[in-house]
Design a protein around this nucleic acid. Structure first.
Length: 493
RNA sequence: GCCUCCAUCGUCUAGUGGCCCAGGACGAAGCCCUCUCAAGGCUUAAACCGGGGUUCGAAUCCCCGUGGAGGCACCA
């Protein structure tokens, strides 16, 4: 564990729904920053105007807050190293681009996209690796400067070394070595004047004092380029940790659009916004995605604070991890069980409200202990407790018939139960259960037969929280009315 | 095709040369508890990709295969 305060950052693009990968990167960054007493920041990488999708920037802020990963600096809250939106940092990039051109590490390129395309196709045809052919690399700087001044359209490319090797150090994998001849003269600045990721991210990470760059392993391929850029500037390199990618549940390849749709049908998703809507909790989601790529020996159920205590960048794993939604269910259910009654009540209340049910806090507080260990997702509260707030229930006639008995016998049991229960002053758990138990025994019936009829009668469903606890909450009058109704249904079968 | 990375139960992982006939978790199976469904308790099955080395000793180090993943854009 590092003791120096770490400055970390999550730097997503507003180009689509916020997904799990962003959430996990943000989580690790958050954990490292909090643990070391450093800062966690959020930076918006919005330099590709064409791919920007309206609304996704807000989704990013909302998603991070929902997860509880509050950043110390960011586009929407500011900070001492702002602006945190890359499109607002053009001057900074322009300045650094000039530095690179002046030092001979970058050069303007006047090749048209059409020509580049043709070259690429030619190379593919000849079974060569597609790469920039270096046409503009040899243009004398003065001539290039003149053409730029004349207003000719251009981009800026990084001048990669052509010989030797580049050794880049990844915290999880060690040294990564690549022949420089394999590297391309990558584009640093586009013709619209905006920088590409390669330039913008390196500049920003340096300018913002980032000490640990935790990012997706998709960047591994261009990692050597990035360290070359940093070294060209003469800057100190931050610690780099490239996280493994998420594989689809089958383990074969990355999650695709189709896989996402399939997951959604199954009540799961890789998008943070969906996860919220599907009834998952931030605690469950965080615990779940924390453990895909972070090896914990034992006691893997953790709150965010516990994760802060136990996290170590050294325990991150480099191999790809298949997504396992069953495990998400498990962690979500486990965290729900850890919530206090008041907390859980507040979290499930909106679901009843949304259904237009007359939910009141006092009743809700009584219900929560009965359903807490039955919920996998928060929206399960409806199937387990909606009947508490309904005026009447509509049991299916066939459900009212007890196992091994016919409708007539079931009706008789319902009548007898009504007799017993209606004689009681209240239907509290303590008062109602003993006489009913006695009846079951005297009649030589299975508890399940009698209680089953009552369950369906009073709750309208075959699966419910425990019977007597439920009846107590429903209340005497309502229960008796519902049993009466069930008797009628059984008699008319 | 080329480059890079990765490789322990079905899945996520612990393991950094002897504490490992490999530990935990999810899932699966069984039993117990039980008014349904859960939760809980107990138990079981289940892995070091293959082959060579190095070493007294290898899941752990090296090499070669094989498999998997990522990348090869004026996207990030």
């Amino acid at each position: 564990m590092s003791t120096k305060p770490a400055r970390t950052r999550v730097a997503p693009s507003p180009t689509g729904h916020m997904h799990l990968g962003t959430a996990r990167t943000a989580l690790y960054c958050y954990l490292l920053a909090r643990q070391t007493g450093g800062q966690f920041l959020m930076r918006l990488e919005d330099t590709d105007l064409k791919r920007t999708v309206e609304g996704t920037e807000q989704e990013l802020y909302d998603g991070l807050r929902w997860l509880g990963l509050q950043y110390d600096e960011g586009p929407d809250i500011g900070g001492p190293y702002g602006p945190y939106r890359q499109t607002e940092r053009r001057e900074i990039y322009r300045h650094h681009t000039q530095t690179l051109i002046a030092s001979g590490h970058a050069y303007p390129c006047f090749c048209t996209p059409e020509r580049l395309d043709k070259v690429r196709q030619e190379q593919m045809k000849n079974k060569q690796n597609p790469h920039y052919d270096g046409t503009c690399r040899v243009i004398p700087p003065e001539e290039a400067a003149r053409r730029v001044a004349d207003g000719e359209s251009y981009i800026v490319r990084f001048k990669m070394p052509t010989e030797g090797v580049t050794v880049a150090h990844d915290h999880l994998r060690g040294d990564i070595t690549i022949e420089n001849s394999q590297l391309n003269d990558y584009v640093l600045v586009r013709s619209d004047g905006l920088p590409t990721y390669h330039l913008a991210a390196m500049v920003d990470d340096h300018e913002m004092g980032i000490t640990h760059v935790i990012r997706s392993s998709e960047w591994l391929a261009t990692f050597p380029l990035h360290v070359n850029i940093i070294r060209a500037f003469g800057w100190e390199e931050p610690v780099f940790a490239h996280l493994s990618v998420f594989l689809k549940p089958s383990g074969k390849g990355k999650m695709s659009k189709r896989d996402s749709a399939a997951a959604k049908l199954d009540g799961h998703s890789i998008f943070v916004k969906d996860l919220d809507e599907l009834g998952f909790t931030p605690e469950g989601v965080l615990n779940w995605c924390a453990l895909m790529g972070w090896g914990v020996a034992e006691d893997d159920v953790m709150t965010l604070d516990q994760m802060v205590e136990r996290f170590s960048i050294d325990n991150l794993t480099p191999s790809p991890a298949a997504i396992n939604f069953q495990k998400l269910d498990h962690f979500n259910a486990t965290h729900i069980r850890m919530f206090s009654t008041e907390d859980l009540a507040a979290r499930i209340k909106p679901y009843f409200v949304r259904e237009g049910l007359p939910v009141d806090d006092a009743t809700l507080l009584q219900i929560v202990p009965l359903i807490r260990e039955r919920l996998v997702t928060l929206d399960d509260c409806l199937s387990f407790a909606a009947f508490f707030f309904k005026g009447e229930v509509t049991p299916a006639s066939e459900d009212l018939v007890a196992k091994g008995l016919d409708a007539k016998q079931s009706a008789e049991i319902a009548r007898k139960s009504y007799e017993i229960l209606s004689a009681l002053p209240s239907l509290s758990h303590a008062e109602a259960e003993p006489p009913m138990r006695a009846y079951v025994e005297a009649a030589g019936l299975a508890p399940n037969q009698v209680f089953g009829i009552l369950r369906v009668a009073t709750t309208g469903q075959k699966v419910s929280p425990p019977l007597f606890e439920s009846m107590e909450i429903i209340g005497r009058d309502k229960c008796l009315k519902r049993i009466q109704n069930a008797i009628e249904i059984l008699e008319n079968m």
